[in-house]
Design a protein around this nucleic acid. Structure first.
Lengths: 221, 221
DNA sequence: GTATTGAGATACGGTTCTGTATCTGACAGG
DNA sequence: CCTGTCAGATACAGAACCGTATCTCAATAC
């Protein structure tokens, strides 16, 4: 069945397999906890193959980061852009979390490892920051849409609300990994729901009580 | 000036200095990114001193974790227990965040490193989980107090609300480290304020609209 | 003052990792 | 087929790290 591979195909395959093995190992024992030898061993190659495809571990991490960024951005966009209503977005979000929950610990460990790695590399930090910004922007857009659908003016800039939701995703995941008993699978989505209702309520109250009120927490630029 | 040290004092001093050096290095280059040699070098000792005081790196990390847990718990309790009103708690929170913000990246990096380390050690995970649970419990208690002071019944179990706030602290810190421009120093506290107002509003609305309504997101026990 | 004890320094053997340099065998072009 | 080329394997040298075993000398005890 397996068709005979051309040279380039073969090369790309091994590159992918090396990246895949690295992904697993980074989640399991951390970036600086894994050696090149472990990576090539798990991928079924030798160190020669590795140094033929990557300049070193640093470049591999870079490539992995790029790959993950691309992947993640596609997911977020699929979640927000391809939804007709805000409620549909919520449903997508729930399904996505359910899926991710299968390997939450590994997923989060990898994400955290890459975050730490980027944190320590001055060249990489802005790249990571930009990635997060894009995610938040997508969220903000979905929120804007959601509030508009309910004809409610948000109680704070949607960017801030998006920041809150995005941060909650990270923070709740951390807590869930630590003690799954205290944080259910759907907690994130339920919390999003709760907050949306709260904000809607606050906005409506503010609208009836005092039409001017939005003296809010906008960080200095 | 420096009084002549007794044996035990000297021993404790070097132990402390080793822990201190390890703290710095772990934040800078990660737990598995630092070698015992680096630790003793920074502390101004040799490897002999290290193995005299610790069984190995693992035990040092354990000791460090214990130290941090103790320290952190004291801080949280100082913040909640020693406050007369909820607003005072908020003020303590703001001051605490201001102080922490001086070295947020380092602080968070260390916290994250220890989290990852605990995640990978089956013996340690429940210890970490318990630590978080205590923090959340303190928060929940403060929340209870805050709602009671305003004679409002919370729109969801205070444990869930505490979980939200606690998670937000982590998540927002992560975002702030990535892009300080988008997340101000006081964002956390401002967000707490916003959420409290939102929840109060939601609770009051629910109370006037439908006295039965709390079909909420309570994770299964 | 002398003996003892123990904190910390020094020295060593063994392992693991990295990076490079060289070899081999399969693919591609004629 | 036959040959040049390139992906990947093998071999090797240097460095870092770990853990232990031994040594030194100051703090205690007598």
């Amino acid at each position: 069945m397996s068709k005979r591979l051309t040279r380039q195909e073969s090369r790309e395959l091994t590159r992918d397999q090396l990246l895949c093995a690295a992904t697993e190992l980074f989640a399991e024992v951390g970036v600086s906890g894994t050696s090149v030898e472990q990576i090539v061993e798990r991928a079924g190659y030798t160190r020669g193959a590795f140094y033929g495809n990557f300049e070193g571990k640093h470049e591999l991490v870079l490539a992995l980061l790029e790959q993950r960024t691309q992947h993640e951005l596609e997911e977020v966009q699929a979640m927000t852009l391809r939804a007709d209503s805000f409620d549909e977005t919520i449903e997508h979000l729930r399904a996505w979390h359910r899926e991710r929950d299968r390997n939450l610990a590994g997923w989060l460990a990898l994400r955290t490892e890459l975050w730490l790695y980027g944190l320590r590399d001055p060249k990489l930090l802005p790249v990571l920051a930009d990635r997060e910004r894009r995610s938040r922007a997508a969220f903000a857009q979905a929120l804007e849409q959601g509030f508009a659908a309910r004809s409610v003016t948000p109680p704070a800039p949607v960017e801030l609300l998006a920041l809150i939701l995005h941060s909650l995703d990270d923070g709740l995941s951390i807590q869930r990994v630590l003690s799954p008993a205290d944080t259910g699978t759907d907690t994130v989505v339920d919390v999003v729901d709760l907050l949306m209702r709260s904000w809607t309520s606050l906005a409506r109250n503010a609208a009836t009580a005092a039409p001017d009120s939005t003296p809010d927490s906008t960080p200095a630029p």
